[in-house]
Amino acid sequence: MTTPALSLKNAMLSLNGNAGRVDILHGISLDIEEGHTVGLVGTSGSGKSSLLMLMGGLEQASGGTIHALGQDLTAMNEDALALFRRDNMGVVFQSFHLIPTMTAVENVATPLELAGVKDAFERARSELSDVGLSHRADHYPSQMSGGEQQRVALARASVARPKILLADEPTGNLDGTNGNAIMDLLFGLRDKHGATLVLVTHSDVLAARCDQIIRLEDGLIAQESIAK
């Protein structure tokens, strides 16, 4: 039996805000096998993005355990989590979150630079070329369209060949055409490099492209199904 890429046991998340304590996830347990693609669906506020954040170590669980590639994320401090992400994960956001003061190639090279990779820029250019943006390598985010920015974000997420790709509504800020192109690229990259992909989406059509679909409701798993 192989170790799951991601394994959550009774994972909980509560946050303290100005209005008081908010319970977001009420105890999620699930395993995601290595190389699988998983679609996280559900209504707004159901806890999809929060669950993704827990998987990426971007948010600290209030209870339960989260293992990624066999390592307990809940036992790691902020820096250990950062290093773990650098070496094992790629994250794509709905709002791209490119660094505005860096060019496309610099944005893509950043995770490689952080990992001390010598040919970071050559690999970044090659990755940009894979997403069809070699001609935009030296442009700043503000000089690019939304679709292009998301392609740069995809390249940045996959350039270090992460074992896990986390994508939070990557097409949420894009029109249909651009959205479809991005999803093709995302799945293409995953197929090419064999990473585990967890995708948060509102779209059942997109979710249907995944191996497994998890539907959340009010911070709990309402339904788990195999898509294909």
């Binding site: 990426g56 971007l58 902020e78 820096d79 950062a82 290093l83 773990f84 992400r85 650098r86 070496d87 994250v91 979150h97 490119l98 660094i99 505005p100 003061t101 950043t110 995770p111 952080l114 990992a115 940045r156």
Partner: peptide, 16 residues
């Protein structure tokens, strides 16, 4: 803040 958070997401340590 967003840039810093992005760098953290990409694996930048606190010291960096």
């Amino acid at each position: 803040t967003n840039v810093i958070a992005t760098l953290r997401t990409l694996g930048a340590e606190r010291s960096t």
